[in-house]
Design a protein around this nucleic acid. Structure first.
Lengths: 223, 223
DNA sequence: TCCAGTCCTATACAAACGTCTAGCAACTTA
DNA sequence: TAAGTTGCTAGACGTTTGTATAGGACTGGA
């Protein structure tokens, strides 16, 4: 297939479903992993079944066990895979921050998987959350520079909250899409969300004096 | 038990676990409901089992079925119960907005249940999300009044995002608590989060011009 | 006293699940 | 050619799950 390559160089060899390489051309082992990522992200770890994943991958349930051992081992393999993928995406973004919109689109399936895994309580995704918090913290540092007053709580705390909040959106994709009137993973929903987040992040949602007076009630433990 | 009543009048007859009435004094039917709320909120619908809920309630699995029919019916009963509770809390807050800190604490178990149900895809909690969005929308209206520029997206869209983000925090309570170094449902974590949210909501996180330039890339569909 | 209804337990059942074993076919290596 | 390794399927096993049924204990009214 020599069609014009639409994959940005940053994501070379990263995603599968969205790239030019066909799903059927993958090895069975890779197909199982892709199918597992899909099922885990969409249905969660518990609802997803070995047999359904195997069926999506076009193999038997026995082969899945042959390659990955157990369901828990399969999840760990997916976690490590996504972990490495996100690192590569991140490194690529640092080197070439131009193609943000496209990479956003490409890394989306990984994002939903991470979000779902975090909510499901996967034992190995904790470091990913911590890393996202650290990235947010560095991002918040810039905002704190152009700020006159002193924040009432540590930057780390705010980074944790912003990170968790951001992940909440794909976690509630069903209700977000319904309320938006369009699929939030589609191009229209994606645009709405991106613009909405930019607007929210660039404006204060409550008055400063209202916030400080409300914060006063929390400064000392309530009786 | 004639100890000083700590329950604010707003929540009269609302929560159970945190009130003076003992869990053992409830009818079996109520104990089952309370146990189900606890298990569904903590473990999610799939991981929670009929038998475990019955054991927590101190009854047999058969009695659970006798009172509630099926697991799905039990979930619906919990949904409707929480739905009504939140309405009463909301009505009470409108009538007497003074005891916000305490009511926050009291309505927290319901909040985590709603959050988990929304993420689990419960069929009957959709309206709750829509209602929360509407409340957020009214709340955003005040912020829009004291604003000079025109928002780039509809207020409804921003309300949806803010609502989903807020719910994301209890959904990721495990990682939030770990990153915070303290249980986010404890008094210390609760204070940190309340203050953190106030700080975040009362300040812009990115510069306005940066946002507008970034938004420009989304105004027209990318090629 | 009898009877009907309610509350409750114990046990059984069918389905679905993760896991395991046996075995076949193709390819590689000695 | 023989033996070993790898990729793969089919089927069975034991457990757990939601659900169903039979029956006991208690209560209130006729």
């Amino acid at each position: 297939m020599s069609a014009r390559r639409t994959t940005p160089p940053v994501l070379e060899g990263l995603s599968i479903r969205e790239r030019s390489v066909a799903f059927e051309d993958l090895t069975a082992r890779a197909r199982i992993r892709e199918a597992a990522l899909e099922h885990f992200a969409r249905e969660g770890y518990d609802r997803a079944t070995i047999r359904a994943i195997a069926k999506t991958a076009g193999v038997s349930a026995g082969l899945l066990r042959h390659h990955y051992g157990s369901k828990e081992d399969l999840r760990e393999a997916c976690d490590h895979y996504v972990f490495e993928m996100l690192h590569r995406v991140n490194a690529g973004l640092l080197a070439d921050p131009g193609t943000t919109a496209q990479t956003r689109q490409m890394s989306k399936p990984f994002g939903t998987y991470v979000a779902r895994s975090l909510a499901d309580g996967s034992p190995t995704v904790g470091p990913i959350f911590d890393e996202l918090v650290t990235m947010t913290e560095a991002w918040l540092a810039r905002a704190d520079d152009s700020r006159t007053d002193t924040p009432i709580v540590d930057r780390r705390v705010r980074a944790v909250l912003v990170t968790a909040m951001k992940i909440g959106i794909p976690l509630l994709h069903e209700h977000v899409s319904r309320s938006l009137g369009t699929d939030m993973f589609g191009p229209e929903g994606d645009r709405l969300i991106a613009l909405g987040l930019l607007d929210i992040y660039s404006h204060a949602l409550i008055d400063d004096d209202v916030a400080t007076s409300a914060a006063a009630g929390y400064e000392e433990p309530q009786r």
